[in-house]
């Protein structure tokens, strides 16, 4: 497994643990009503599990297993940029929604996530090809 995939997938696992922790706290609170402020975690719960866990895991596995050019995975710099941008975006969006840092931080986070997907596609797109090309 290439180093970049290790980063993507380990971060995805960390987000899985974080998202499950947020979800468990909210579900327990739904049953026992011990801390109503836990509902504020809901947007972060959704963000870290959908983007942090699922999207990032898909990126890590795709970078690892998509067809290569001989032994090369092409120009990997955009894929590394995607790793940085998507985590910047997740952090901005999740934090802004939970502690109310303001709408523009959420917008900036979404822009970073979109840029991450575009950067990732720069590496992945040419690797989606028939065998032998």
């Amino acid at each position: 497994m290439p180093r970049l995939s290790v980063w993507f997938i380990r971060l995805a696992l960390a987000y899985l643990a974080t998202g499950f922790t947020f979800g468990a706290l909210m579900l327990a609170n739904k049953g026992l009503s011990f801390a109503p402020m836990l509902w504020r975690l809901r947007p972060a719960h959704i963000e870290v599990l959908l983007v942090g866990w699922m999207v990032q895991l898909a990126m890590g596995v795709a970078f690892w297993i998509l067809p290569r050019f001989q032994a090369s995975r092409g120009d990997v710099r955009p894929a590394w940029l995607a790793l940085v941008l998507i985590n910047l975006g997740i952090g901005l969006v999740a934090l802004s929604l939970v502690v109310d840092l303001g709408g523009w931080n959420v917008v900036a986070g979404r822009v970073a996530e979109l840029a991450a997907v575009a950067a990732f596609a720069l590496n992945a797109w040419p690797r989606i090809k028939p065998i032998g090309q």
């Binding site: 696992l13 499950f20 922790t21 979800g23 468990a24 026992l32």
Partner: peptide, 21 residues
């Protein structure tokens, strides 16, 4: 009872997530 069922559900799923990681 149903509140405790939800709390137990939360605990079991959380343990599953941590165990998988």
């Amino acid at each position: 009872l149903w509140g405790w069922v939800l709390a137990l559900s939360a605990l079991l799923q959380w343990l599953a997530g941590v165990g998988f990681v």
